[in-house]
């Protein structure tokens, strides 16, 4: 082995190890090929009588969709992949669907037509490819890079399946980073309105400001107090209270509210203006 080959081998092993360790859902893999390992290409007969390779060196992303006909999860996946295929039109993605040649051709054709996929359907003669990779589940989607290194193995799931495959294809296309995959795999909890931090206080402040506009000082002050009770750290609540109190001529009480707002948000121009307004009123000669 020459130096160049040894170097490639070293970086290949290091890259594969790192990818396997860092890749989200790294524990999932084909039985015989793990994430980071190479999927050897092969040329297989296709459903329409031609031949097609499993891995294309011209594509940045090689996507293999293993399925079987008369199978609900497979059909759900093929339909999702049909949409995905269109979305990646014109990009460097090589798609193939793979099915065991033990299934009746007409059944496979019917499944393909119903799902609307356009990708070539490879016929796995004697389940050789299934055996070589160790495909134990249907459906499952594998994604490899241009060199055939397996980037992702994504078995079927009912929820967010398409999102998870799409982001991995985009990773292979160098459009997103690993953090994007992490975000899709672990989406944030969908908080309810009152759970969103600061939402209740913000709502009270908004309503209070409307009362301020119509010079309903007492109601504005009530909303400000409710906002502060909900979240004492919201500077806008203290500003609102200061303005409501100042509107009632209670500058002595308003000033501490403006001070508190400035302590929380030193850049608050509303608090600074409110404080200046109160100071001007207290000044000698002020009306």
């Amino acid at each position: 082995m020459d130096t160049h080959a040894r170097r490639r081998l070293f970086w290949g092993i290091l890259g594969g190890t790192l990818l396997g360790a860092l890749w989200p859902l790294g524990g999932l893999a084909f039985a015989n090929v793990e994430v980071g390992q190479k999927v050897e290409s092969a040329e297989l007969p296709t459903l329409d009588g031609g031949r097609e390779v499993l891995v294309s060196g011209k594509a940045l992303a090689n996507v293999f969709v293993f399925f079987r006909p008369h199978h609900d999860h497979s059909m759900e996946t093929l339909r999702a992949m049909a949409a995905c295929e269109k979305e990646f039109d014109g990009r460097a993605v090589h798609w193939v669907a793979v099915v065991s040649d033990s299934h009746a051709r007409d059944d496979v054709r019917a499944a393909v037509a119903e799902a609307g996929i356009r990708m070539p359907v490879l016929l796995d003669e004697g389940d050789r490819l299934y055996g070589k990779l160790g495909v134990r589940l249907h459906p499952v989607v594998g994604i490899a890079d241009d060199a055939g290194s397996l980037l992702a193995y994504v078995p079927f799931r009912k929820i967010n399946y398409c999102d998870m495959i799409r982001v991995r294809i985009r990773y292979a296309l160098h459009e997103v980073d690993l953090a994007a995959i992490e975000r899709v795999d672990h989406p944030p909890k969908a908080l309810f309105p009152n759970e969103v931090p600061g939402a209740v206080a913000s709502r009270r402040v908004s309503l209070g400001e409307m009362f301020l506009k119509s010079r309903q000082w007492t109601k504005a002050a009530d909303q400000a107090r409710a906002a502060i009770e909900s979240d004492p750290t919201v500077a806008a609540g203290h500003v609102l209270l200061g303005r409501a109190l100042a509107g009632q001529g209670k500058c002595a009480q308003a000033l501490p509210a403006f001070d508190r707002a400035l302590a929380l948000d030193p850049g608050s121009s509303a608090a600074a203006e409110g404080k200046q307004g109160c100071a001007a009123r207290k000044a000698p000669g002020a009306r």
Binding site: K158, I159, N160, D163, H186, P187, P188, K189, A190, L191, F192, P193
Partner: peptide, 22 residues
């Protein structure tokens, strides 16, 4: 229904609050 679904918006399909496992 709102034990599992958020009736306004979510990052998870079917308006689930979190992924099914969580």
């Amino acid at each position: 229904c709102a034990n599992c679904h958020n009736p306004h918006g979510s990052s998870v399909e079917k308006l689930l609050i979190q992924l099914p496992f969580d």
